[in-house]
Design a protein around this nucleic acid. Structure first.
Lengths: 224, 224
DNA sequence: ACCTGAACACCGTTCAAGT
DNA sequence: ACCTGAACACCGTTCAAGT
């Protein structure tokens, strides 16, 4: 299996496999075929090895998921150092959102697994450092970090989900008809605001709107 | 298959199946074994029918997911009518969070599928109605609705995820050691705030903290 | 250590058929 | 309409074995 004429191997020769190569191949497949269609067997097939070859480098599928997530988190830019703290916070949140939009699988990788790994800690470090330098106490800094992180995660996951749905014509048609079937008597606000709701399911403006609400609330508690 | 002595059927006799019975059985299984372990074959087995029997009532697995989600959303209480609008908004967000905590599968059902169905529209209607009655314009009401919804979804999903991880001793141990292995030189804030971060990964206080930030920011934009 | 190959216990879904 | 049974094309993971 895997031999062609002249004895060329269709599979990768021995000792060319590595954790990094597997992670990059897994990421490619997730972005090409979607996170749900991703499988260990698919990665192994792409690399020309048996499924069990991957278990030399990763304990199981979740372990590979964590490695891909950490690989992506490593791509996050550093926090800008020369700016007022609200702008620094904005920059961190925006760059995390942008990374999620560029790599939609990251949303599922962050939501479905607990945080661990150095790259992920680096992100927390950046945000916590900004908040501490701004003068917030330990408890407020921690609470604010968790709030901002979950807001970015929730809003961007939703945005990605909706964008994927819009690309599937069948699902999009069913969503439209289900919206249009709502009676204006029972759902007056939903029917009236349907165009606005459709417009606000994603985009930079919508993300910044919620982020600005959080920052405005936070600035009311500014210590200095 | 399914016959016992005396001819008693181990499977449900004909015409006792219904969409509602399937939804309730699916929900039970999701909550007993976890959402990930859920399968159509499992539901069919629990009901004593073949896997294909379910396809009479649901087009596919996603269709059943949507039905379970709508069933759960139907359990949400109505918006309190005699209260200032910030309290009404708080009530809607808190009751959605409570429902998600009581039925952890709801988090995945909301995050993984697009919104559709009357029960889900009912929730949007309640929140939008409150915001419109408070005097916000169409665009602001829609943006605020999406912001609040994604905040509740993100923060509560995260809370549920972390609580599940804490229950798994193996995963919990690995998360502790990965936290403790971080050097105080490279991650000063994370190491210093480790106890606060652990405390703020969930709970009513953490949820209300973020919700109050949003509401404080929103009240700065109050029209009247 | 690194990788194979067969096997186990599963999946969702299609298709043809029975009542 | 309602449900069965066999089959298809998959999964993740274990286990024993080879180099």
């Amino acid at each position: 299996m895997g031999h062609t004429w002249l004895g060329l191997m269709a599979r990768t020769p021995r000792n060319t496999l590595s954790a990094d190569l597997i992670v990059r191949t897994a990421l490619e497949l997730m972005e090409a075929k979607g996170t749900d269609a991703f499988s260990l067997r698919g990665v192994a097939g792409e690399l020309g090895v048996g499924p069990m070859a991957l278990y030399t480098y990763f304990r199981n599928k979740d372990d590979l998921y964590d490695a891909v997530r950490d690989h992506l988190m490593g791509l996050l830019p550093a926090v800008p150092s020369d700016a007022p703290w609200p702008d620094q916070v904005r920059a961190v949140c925006r760059s995390l959102r942008l990374l999620m939009l560029q790599h939609p699988c990251l949303a599922q990788l962050l939501a479905g697994r607990p945080l661990s790994g150095h790259e992920t800690a680096r992100v927390a470090e950046g945000l916590l450092g900004v908040l501490r330098a701004a003068g917030f106490d330990a408890e407020t800094a921690a609470r604010t970090h968790t709030t901002l992180f979950t807001y970015v995660l929730g809003s961007t996951s939703w945005e990605i989900q909706m964008a994927a749905e819009r690309r599937d014509p069948e699902a999009w048609r069913r969503l439209r008809t289900s919206m249009e079937s709502l009676s204006a008597r029972d759902f007056p606000s939903v029917v009236e605001l349907a165009p606005e709701l459709a417009r606000t399911t994603g985009g930079d403006e919508q993300f910044d709107y919620g982020l600005d609400l959080l920052l405005a609330g936070l600035q009311l508690r500014t210590p200095s």
